[in-house]
């Protein structure tokens, strides 16, 4: 069966890129300067723990700029890094960005790619969700996405640099707690996705699917598989967004 995905932006959508949107996003995402900074600290400590130098550690956070991908590759680190398994794992854990990118195309598809593509380099789970929520109450503004991304990127990259120099034990309680922060970010954004009682069953199915796949198959596939189960159920039940 061939499935066609149409990503033509809605003709009624009005997308802009403004300084006001940038400022609004920047202010809304300021707490992430601290939270991403703490998570970045842990990444810096972990990089130092595997013997990576300061410059490669910081460059990794700049170029890769993905907590999931960086954590996955760190977990698979070896004297001779297994490049192909690392690449497959990173693709699996970041495949959700296909969904996010397609969704953003629906919102910002009318804008020039030379504006949107550089901004998308800084896309993160939280900035995507914040931008989606903002576009529902204001005009779609890619400036908001850029503004929201800046504190996250500065916190993450700066945190990595600071953490590299901190005498923080990689297995200490603060490091364990900091490793939770990416999940905590998502938890704080969940209320924006809550659709009332009709969310209960799909969300339970999503969680159950993730737990089953994470336990029996691979944690790398847990999010995609669990999310597919819950979303599939919602689609079959003809839920409205």
């Amino acid at each position: 069966m061939v499935m066609t995905i149409t990503t033509q932006p809605a003709p009624s959508a009005k997308a802009t890129c403004t300084r006001a949107g940038f400022r609004r996003g920047l202010l809304a995402a300021l707490p992430f300067l601290l939270s991403n900074g703490v998570a970045g600290l842990v990444m810096g400590v972990a990089y130092r723990g595997v013997g990576l130098g300061f410059v490669p550690s910081v460059l990794s956070s700049v170029v890769v700029y993905s907590a999931t991908a960086q954590a996955v590759t760190l977990g698979m680190w070896a004297p001779v890094p297994p490049i192909i398994p690392m690449a497959v794992a990173c693709i699996a854990t970041n495949a959700r960005y296909l969904v996010m990118g397609a969704h953003l195309y629906q919102i910002f598809g009318q804008l020039k790619k030379r504006i949107t593509l550089p901004i998308l380099f800084l896309l993160a789970d939280a900035s995507w969700l914040m931008t989606t929520a903002d576009a529902e109450s204001n005009d779609a503004d890619v400036g908001y996405l850029l503004g929201a991304s800046v504190p996250m990127a500065v916190g993450w990259i700066g945190g990595t640099a600071l953490g590299y120099g901190l005498p923080l034990a990689p297995d200490g309680p603060l490091s364990v707690a900091a490793a939770l922060l990416p999940a905590a970010f998502i938890v704080t954004l969940l209320p924006t996705q809550w659709r009332g009682a009709r969310s209960v069953l799909p969300w339970l199915l999503s969680a159950a699917g993730a737990l089953v796949v994470g336990s029996l198959v691979s944690p790398n596939w847990a999010m995609l598989a669990g999310g597919a189960v819950g979303t599939g159920f919602s689609m079959m039940r003809a839920d409205h967004a």
């Binding site: 969700l129 998502i186 799909p202 999503s206 999010m223 979303t231 839920d239």
Partner: peptide, 30 residues
């Protein structure tokens, strides 16, 4: 409709997987 319904489900699955991997500390923290 898919793109609007998917995020909540994907993120619930993300948190569930993180709790599975992180254990009690992650469950309590989340």
């Amino acid at each position: 409709r898919f793109f609007q319904l998917a995020p909540g489900n994907l993120f619930v699955a993300f948190v569930a997987a993180a709790c599975l991997e992180g254990g009690l500390a992650s469950i309590v923290g989340c």
